[in-house]
Simulated assay, not measured.
Amino acid sequence: MSSFHAALFLHLLGVLTVVSGIAVAAVAHASARRAGDVGAVAALLGAARTGVLLAAPGSLILVGGGVWLVHLEHLPWDTHWLDHALVLFGVSLVLGAAGGRTPRQARVLAERLAAAGEPATPELRALLDAPRARIANAASAVAMLGVLWLMVAKPA
């Protein structure tokens, strides 16, 4: 296997891991919003956390493989599509981190309520339905889709 193929493999492995993690987190959070039982909410938000924990190392693999590809292809760092992809990737990470705070608070509350045998509270429902977190997470996903488009299309 050549260095190029190894770098490309790592980069694509990172992409798949990040996208998979984002998908797991999004589906689990959406399911938690619809769940009626506080124990189910806690379990689903725990699964969302697993998705986030999958995406984090995937980001490192993605970036490492990408940097290696840039080096191997002697691609200038000021290439426009690469600059935009890096900025969008950073924006996606920041928005995802910001959007993940409220679901994390909801998970902690749901776990506490489930352990005490209490039903879902209006506070839990408000955390699950928080518009700012939903907008931040949706914007993060859109930014990541933009990164994917730039990586594939490589517009001038």
Rank of each mutant, 00 (worst) to 15 (best):
E111Y: 01
H80Y: 09
V41M: 09
H80P: 11
L88Q: 06
H29W: 09
G36L: 07
L75A: 13
L16T: 05
A42P: 07
V63R: 05
T17E: 02
A43Y: 09
A97W: 07
D37L: 06
W68E: 14
V19C: 00
V24E: 01
G96L: 04
V24F: 03
A26Q: 01
R112E: 15
P76L: 09
A97R: 05
L53F: 11
R104F: 14
A40C: 04
F89P: 03
W81V: 10
G51D: 05
A30V: 03
G46P: 03
P57D: 01
A26H: 03
I22E: 00
L13F: 04
A32Y: 06
P103M: 07
L54I: 15
V87Y: 12
H29A: 12
V94G: 06
F89Q: 06
H29G: 03
W81G: 13
A28P: 02
D37R: 08
G14T: 02
W81S: 10
L45Q: 11
G100P: 09
A26E: 07
G66K: 10
L53K: 06
H74A: 15
V94K: 05
L93N: 04
A26L: 03
W81E: 11
V24Y: 01
G14L: 01
G99R: 07
L62M: 11
R101S: 07
P57E: 01
L82V: 12
A25Q: 07
V27T: 06
H29T: 13
V38F: 06
G21H: 04
S59H: 07
V67A: 14
V27N: 00
S20V: 04
E73D: 14
L44F: 06
V67R: 13
G96E: 02
R101N: 10
A48H: 02
S92T: 04
V87N: 07
L82W: 10
A98E: 03
V27S: 05
D83M: 15
L13C: 02
H80G: 13
V70Q: 14
A97F: 07
S59Y: 12
I22M: 08
P76M: 12
L95I: 05
L72W: 12
V38K: 06
L82Y: 12
L86R: 11
A106T: 08
V27P: 00
A32G: 08
V67S: 09
E111K: 14
R49K: 14
A28E: 02
R33Q: 09
P76C: 11
V27L: 13
L45R: 05
A43F: 11
A56W: 04
P57C: 02
H71V: 14
G66F: 10
V70M: 14
L45W: 02
T79D: 13
A40M: 13
I61D: 04
G65N: 10
V38L: 04
V94C: 06
G66H: 11
A43K: 12
S31Y: 01
H71D: 15
S20W: 00
S20E: 00
L45C: 09
